[in-house]
Nucleic acid binder design. Structure first.
Lengths: 170, 170
DNA sequence: CTTGGAATGTCAACAAGACTGACTTAAAAG
DNA sequence: CTTTTAAGTCAGTCTTGTTGACATTCCAAG
């Protein structure tokens, strides 16, 4: 710090976006936006008696085909028992296929079936549509900022999980 | 549209941020960030056997003291039975006070007690701390973009609900 | 080779928090 | 006086999270 004046100027001007009021608005914006974010897939899922948990499983299986149950567990941050109930139903309904690992027979490798892929496409089309509309309205600069804040907000071990990776290292 | 060339330029250059891959990354960033967003309050709540539902009620009662049950219902987007279960407990535990309306005696106006305010402060301090850290890392420009995208992503009837209003008109 | 521990996955039971539907009470509005 | 509105309650269901107990499989140390 070179002098007190520059510090004061920084606190009173360029750091205005860090006031409690600004933060409260950000918190509420996050709450309402997340509701919008899930609203469209939720409607589709409700029609076929699935929930958000099924969506999350389908999404990440599509994203990383052949992923193991354990890997999925770490990404989703739930217990294996909780995930297992969801997977059991998806497998029974013919949306997901569980293949016993060839090298390690304890592992189950998960893949979407044709029907599973179709539902995945339907769900992510809906979710992308809203995201695309929001991005379009806000513009590329805003999108860059959006992504920066989200990245800084998540737990550090999740930082890289969504970028461009084939395998999700958690 | 003036000519095909300018249209092509727009699609291939300035709209690169609207690719499916970009959107997928945004979707996953939203998922992971929301988990971070709720993680700190969740830990505090778990210690006293409360859940996210209690947090939401406490947050919005603090935000709009004297709000009616019906108003809260519209903000939270749950059924009155669901909200009632949460409010009953908060009132029994002495965190929330329910005052019969003076003008319209059918209405119940909700206020935080001293103990309720203390918990609210504890929860929002934790949540603001993470938000503040993220804002600080990303910087004011990014924050502006973050807010723009979130606003565009929420349902239109929720747009104004979090800005600077005393009463939340839903 | 065997055995014990670690990893993986399954089954059962329970709790929170959402939902619907039916109903009551009290007060306001017509 | 009748209807509508605001709030609350009771009962039952569903999703999705939790623990605990258990089976299977792999691997490494003895």
């Amino acid at each position: 710090m070179i002098d007190g004046a520059s510090h004061r100027a920084q606190t009173s001007e360029s750091l205005l976006f860090l006031t409690d009021e600004q933060l409260r608005q950000g918190i509420e914006a996050m709450f309402f936006a997340y509701r919008g974010f899930t609203a469209d897939p939720d409607r589709i899922l409700a029609e076929m008696d699935y929930g958000r948990a099924h969506h999350r499983a389908i999404h990440f299986i599509n994203r990383a085909p052949g992923t193991t149950v354990n890997n999925l567990l770490n990404i989703l941050g739930v217990t294996k028992q909780s995930l297992n109930r969801v997977l059991r139903r998806l497998i029974a309904d013919g949306l997901v296929e569980s293949r016993i690992g060839t090298q390690d027979k304890r592992e189950r490798h998960l893949h979407l079936t044709e029907a599973g892929s179709q539902l995945e496409a339907q769900l992510s089309d809906a979710q992308r549509a809203r995201m695309r509309a929001a991005y379009k309205v806000a513009g590329p600069e805003a999108v860059a900022g959006f992504r920066q804040v989200l990245e800084a907000m998540m737990d550090t071990d999740m930082r890289g999980a969504y970028s461009g990776l084939k395998d999700i290292p958690v």
